[in-house]
Design a protein around this nucleic acid. Structure first.
Length: 316
DNA sequence: TGCGGCCGTTCAGCGGTACA
DNA sequence: TGTACCGCTGAACGGCCGCA
């Protein structure tokens, strides 16, 4: 039993047939509560993660209920994946108790799929939403976030508040387990920035094909490592980039000391002269690019152009 | 020809194990 | 005992292939 997935959208729908929700930066869960078995939390890949979130134990209060939700961890009032990452794989009971107290999660419930033995997945989203709001699920550790009619307003507001983006859903959509539906569209706020390539790594299982490029920010001492970029460089994109990098090969790293060993081992180094655009969801807790995707080479920029403040660099 | 599903790639972090 | 490595979990994206 896997949750229904959204397709990435290219244009925010403005028709009244759609409603819009905040795209939360967390982990998707199906939350199954029954009087017989109690509460079970299932991840997107059907793993039982109940033990990882003890503060959610009271959800459902023993009622027969199946909901679709996102578990998030707030830092400074904003859902932050880095904070949630500290919780994701902890199973040590004592450590879980400490984390549940110091770094608690919140369950954001946005759909109800079963209630008191009745399967609701065949109902339109609008009706499921009414039933969900009627349940009055509100607690320190769980809530039902609002849905909005005005998607553009929500898009602007989420960007200003540093939230991840917007999900638009067709009001008439039925719930399809495991399906990536075009009735649900996601619009993440991905930030485009420019970085200098200092190396590359071959694709796993091949020698010549590009698997990822290592990017950094120029400084007086060399490149400051910012992460590896693997998405978006498959196929012709990767081949073209590799042809640009090949003549720039060098035997020593252009990155300053402190680069993680796991990133350095097996990498090929190049003169830091190629600037590329990368889209990402910002930075991880360790200052690395989060979910970076290669966009293209910036032939109009040189590394010196990035010295001021690359975060302000915008490709538009 | 277009769409959907699957697969392979990247990222981050934790836990267990091996080794110095 | 501390460190390094591997394998697992979560996330997203792009390419390929089959089917309508």
């Amino acid at each position: 039993m896997r949750p229904m997935l959204a397709t990435r959208g290219d244009r925010l729908p403005t028709s009244p047939e759609w409603l819009h929700e905040v795209k939360w930066d967390g982990i998707r869960l199906l939350v199954d509560s029954t009087p017989e078995r109690g509460l079970r939390l299932w991840s997107r890949n059907e793993n039982d993660v109940t033990a990882g979130y003890p503060e959610l134990a009271g959800f459902g209060a023993g009622r027969d209920l199946l909901v679709d939700a996102e578990v998030v961890a707030f830092r400074d009032g904003i859902p932050t994946f880095a904070a949630l990452a500290e919780r994701m794989h902890v199973r040590n009971q004592r450590r879980l108790e400490v984390l549940a107290r110091d770094n608690p999660v919140t369950l954001l419930v946005f759909d109800v799929l079963r209630l008191d033995g009745r399967d609701l997945t065949g109902l339109p989203l609008e009706e499921r939403r009414e039933i969900l709001e009627g349940l009055e699920l509100a607690d320190v550790h769980w809530q039902v976030p609002a849905a909005y009619d005005d998607g553009e307003m929500l898009m602007q507001a989420t960007e200003q508040q540093g939230l991840e983006g917007v999900v638009s859903k067709r009001r008439s959509s039925r719930y399809e387990y495991g399906a990536r539906s075009r009735h649900w569209l996601k619009f993440p706020h991905r930030r485009r920035t420019s970085w200098v390539v200092g190396g590359w790594r071959p694709e796993t299982g091949s020698r010549g094909r590009l698997g990822a490029v290592l990017v950094g920010l120029p400084s007086a001492d060399g490149l400051v490592f910012m992460g590896r970029v693997g998405s978006g460089i498959a196929g012709r994109n990767g081949q073209a980039l590799l042809e640009l990098l090949a003549p720039l090969a060098r035997t020593t790293t252009p990155f300053v000391a402190g680069m993680p060993k796991v990133d350095a081992v097996g990498s090929h180094w190049v003169e830091p002269s190629i600037v590329v655009d990368v889209e990402s969801l910002g930075f991880s807790g360790q200052g690395r690019l989060r979910q970076p995707a290669f966009i293209g080479v910036r032939h109009d920029l040189a590394p010196d152009d990035l010295v001021e403040d690359p975060a302000e660099e915008d490709a538009e």
